[in-house]
Design a protein around this nucleic acid. Structure first.
Lengths: 197, 197
DNA sequence: CCGCGATTACCGAGTGGTCGGTAGGTTGTG
DNA sequence: CACAACCTACCGACCACTCGGTAATCGCGG
């Protein structure tokens, strides 16, 4: 029986995409290796041939998702700097990709539990993202934000708004205009303060 | 062997508190009835004598948690109206109660997956909370918010900030000053807009 | 172009364990 | 005697993961 359908790499990627779907639908704990394997026409043991354990599979899924997200963020700003508008565009893009958003929301929240295999990934990710976002804000809005806010304070607030809106949007997509509300928050950050220097 | 240690009601509550702990530590899917039972010195079947299924147990845990949170929010504003400052005080209170915050964060995110038993609870909860919060904002700040924001837009943003900060705080408590950042966001909402009527 | 050993890509069967839930008791109390 | 408060024993299903295969494919010397 011939199996020759592409390289090992493409097969691995096929599995990673299926895994992301299943993690989105059931969370990491609730997902079984067998159910992921079934989706790509493999036995559970066939999948474990490509990834030695469920933990490692999760790790590579997260790595892949991050890569792709970086593409969306960096490509439009090619050559130029990333602006707050690029970030808003990412939120708009996410509103079309429910599965991706759901996987991220479920996995990041799940990662706070003790000994979760994704805990380090998310802690590190938020740390670097906040630092990077603070610079984006400083570059665009300067150091003087409304209400005496610093870019270092605005950055975690920004990710909080993104994440929190995603949760509410996932629960009630018809009630929550995620991109609109995110832009409203950005507008809040951009208001010029009356008691200027 | 006498077991007479209080009423059925107190025994049930004891179980609910233990369940909240275990759900916080392992999520709903990851928690087992047996591990909750063990914590209150019962067998798994002993616990099922009080709550007929895991789903029902979760439902009652959430109901209890909501009741308690309402106490914190309503009692300080006794007689008077609830203000944004009361909400900030709740965030401060939460920063001392990691377990409660963690259970809420994990369970609410988990609830977005298909057929999750807590999905209706959280959808409804966010719906009513947003409406209620919009009124609190309107009562305190009026209809004219910075950047043309309406109270109906500010309410979901507020919960987004609360939830999103909780996630970042749970992952890195030392880096994130949750109450401080929340108050910073409130300050942002309170800035008087320069282009006033 | 052929043959052959190494490698790849799987699968069947099984391990030990946990899951939520049920059936049917026993024991002490009002 | 009825009932609450449990328990032991058990069920079938599922869990991640291991072992030991087998069939196809590849690189490569002749």
């Amino acid at each position: 029986m011939v199996r020759r359908r592409g390289s090992q790499e493409s097969r691995r990627e096929e599995i990673l995409l299926a895994a992301l779907d299943v993690f989105a639908e059931r969370g990491y704990t609730g997902a079984s290796i067998a159910s992921i394997a079934e989706r790509v026409g493999l036995s559970q043991q066939g999948l474990l041939h490509y990834f030695p354990s469920k933990d490692r599979l999760l790790a590579e899924v997260l790595r892949l998702r991050d890569e792709r997200n970086l593409d969306v963020l960096v490509l439009p700003g090619e050559g130029g700097a990333i602006t707050l508008d690029t970030v808003a565009a990412l939120v708009e893009y996410n509103a079309q990709r429910r599965g991706i958003v759901q996987s991220f929301t479920v996995l990041s929240a799940e990662s706070v539990i003790e000994d979760h295999p994704a805990k380090d990934f998310f802690r590190e990710r938020y740390g670097t993202s906040r630092a990077w976002m603070a610079e984006v804000i400083r570059a665009e809005l300067g150091d003087e934000l409304p209400a005496g806010l610093t870019p270092e304070q605005a950055a975690p607030l920004m990710f909080a708004v993104m994440d929190g809106l995603q949760l509410q949007w996932l629960l009630a997509p018809d009630e929550i205009d995620m991109p609109g509300l995110f832009r409203a928050f950005l507008a809040l950050l951009k208001t010029r303060h009356p008691a200027a220097e």
